[in-house]
Amino acid sequence: MRSLIDITDLSKEEIAELVDTAQDMIAHPEKYAHACDGKILAALFFEPSTRTRLSFESAMQSLGGSVISVSSAASSSAAKGESVADTAKTVSCYSDIMAIRHPKEGAALVLAKNALVPVINAGDGGHCHPTQTLTDLLTIYREKGRFDDLTVGLCGDLKFGRTVHSLINALSRYSGIRFVLISPEELKLPSYVKKDAIKDRGIPYEQTEDLMEVLPKLDILYMTRVQRERFFNEEDYLRLKDSYVLTPEKLRVAKEDLCIMHPLPRVNEISVAVDDDPRACYFKQVRNGRYIRMALILKLLKEA
């Protein structure tokens, strides 16, 4: 049974295929309106989520399928102490495909190992969030027309930001990629991610705390939120949360075709005034997320 737990479960060719399908879905949504008629997606959200849950539900309904869902751990049998493995076996009886978000790292893998239907990891704690990465890749492709030869700046929380780790892992497979890692000292990219995905692959990179110094050279600026829920200590969160705030004034030095991305939700790291800048792509990202999830659901159901 094919599932998607980590972005590296997909080859470059499969990512290209998903991007192509998603682009066709954007251009011709009517072609796919009944592609999943009669199929049921179980959306198991044991951790709060607005965007990802609605995106999955919208994607399945756009394919003609239907959705059953758990929208919080408190309202599910998990609150009674049911294991993820038992949840997998039970929900397999009700659905054709599952998407899971869970606060525990590795929960999606445990679900997939016990499920009888394909499983999509919709975020397992601070570990992986592959459909966000697919969303990011579709956005990069639609904005830049390529995955090669890009200078990609990643800014903010590079330590706990799972979307950053997954995106680095995904992009490091393409040629001509250069990474610029912009973060305060305490939120630097973990050394193992840097070693495995950047250094060992011979990819050029630089690390800095100064966004303004590197902004003019970037093709893509991926902003992230400092996530309160990843901190054990509230004091550390409060000290670091305002490290970087992107404003129209700062963007004056950036390239005219810069692509500004953010996995959302934002708190204050991108000023609302930036939203009207044509370089702001983060709401396009949200739209792309729906279509790439449609492409993924369709692929996994076809392969099931």
């Binding site: 993820v84 606060p103 790292e105 929960a107 445990v110 397992d124």
Partner: peptide
């Protein structure tokens, strides 16, 4: 040792480590 790992709560889940 990760308190956020599913292996810290899931019943009878084997502790598996991979050589990376």
């Amino acid at each position: 040792k990760n308190p956020r790992c599913i292996s810290s709560t899931e019943q009878e889940l084997p502790q598996i480590f991979k050589l990376t």
